[in-house]
């Protein structure tokens, strides 16, 4: 996936400003940066949910605008931060929607298998008949991600998927995403607020600040004191333990 000189204006404010990027296939890429850096906007433009004002985004050699909606949905899945679904659906019905691009609502044998797999992958099999409006935030988040999993796309874009998840589920979620990359060859692009999760799981990191691309490099090159201090305008300690880097920024 290639992003070329993409910009987005909200009124006179430049939310995304001339971003040039190439997303590496088959990697887990984390998007980090302070609030209002334009991470979510960039993610939405990559998935065509919002229009870009300037620039081009190429997916498999074709501009995302020229993709047919349904073909795009088989290639790329996105989950945004807030999903105001106020329908009374069971978890299984929700996850089944992930198969819509493939089967147009007529659930086949293969679809059912994918749905079952998605449910068990995210520990939802036992509660699959519960209504989504009765779930806790964490359960609901997992149900949405299970839906994206069932969609079975090459690219998976997630906007802060760890929101509402406790530590245990957050770690599980990251492990599953890493699994998708390593064993299923997916390309996962994920907006993260906790840089420690990015440090532990991401292959590459895209850092954004004030709508501009700050740095795009391998994780080791980004998780450095001199980079992070300038990115977040604060004093961050980076230490190493068992071969992984950690950032301390609480005081």
């Amino acid at each position: 996936m290639e992003i070329k000189k993409v910009s987005k204006l909200y009124g006179s404010r430049q939310v995304v400003d001339g971003v040039d990027l190439e997303i590496s296939e088959g990697k887990l890429t984390a998007l980090i940066g302070p609030n209002g850096a334009g991470k979510s906007t960039l993610l939405s433009m990559m998935s065509r949910l919002i229009d870009k004002d300037i620039g081009e985004i190429y997916l498999d050699g074709n501009e995302v605008k020229s993709w047919k909606q349904n073909e795009l949905a088989k290639k790329l899945a996105i989950l945004k931060q807030s999903n105001h679904v106020n329908l009374k659906l069971t978890i299984r019905e929700l996850v089944a929607f992930g198969r819509f691009p493939h089967s147009k609502g007529r659930v086949t044998q293969k679809d059912s298998e994918m749905i079952d797999e998605a449910l068990s992958h995210f520990g939802l099999t036992d509660i699959q008949d519960q209504l989504i409006d009765s779930l806790s935030g964490g359960q609901l988040q997992r149900a949405y991600i299970a839906m994206i999993f069932a969609q079975d796309t090459d690219y998976i874009l997630l906007d802060e998927p760890l929101n509402n998840l406790d530590m245990n589920y957050a770690v599980q979620m990251m492990k599953i995403l890493k699994d998708l990359v390593v064993y299923h060859g997916k390309t996962v692009i994920i907006v993260l607020h906790d840089i420690n999760f990015a440090a532990s799981y991401a292959d590459e990191i895209i850092a954004m600040k004030d709508g501009k691309l700050f740095l795009h490099d391998d994780t080791e090159e980004v998780i450095k004191k001199e980079v992070l201090d300038r990115l977040y305008d604060m004093n961050i300690k980076v230490c190493e333990m068992e071969g992984k880097r950690f950032c301390l920024y609480f005081n």
Binding site: L49, Q69, L79, F100, G105
Partner: peptide, 20 residues
């Protein structure tokens, strides 16, 4: 009916699932 239910999930969700 299936498509209408998808529309009921909102524009972003419906679009990302390939619905016009």
């Amino acid at each position: 009916a299936y498509q209408f239910t998808l529309v009921g999930m909102g524009r972003d969700m419906a679009s990302s699932l390939g619905l016009n």
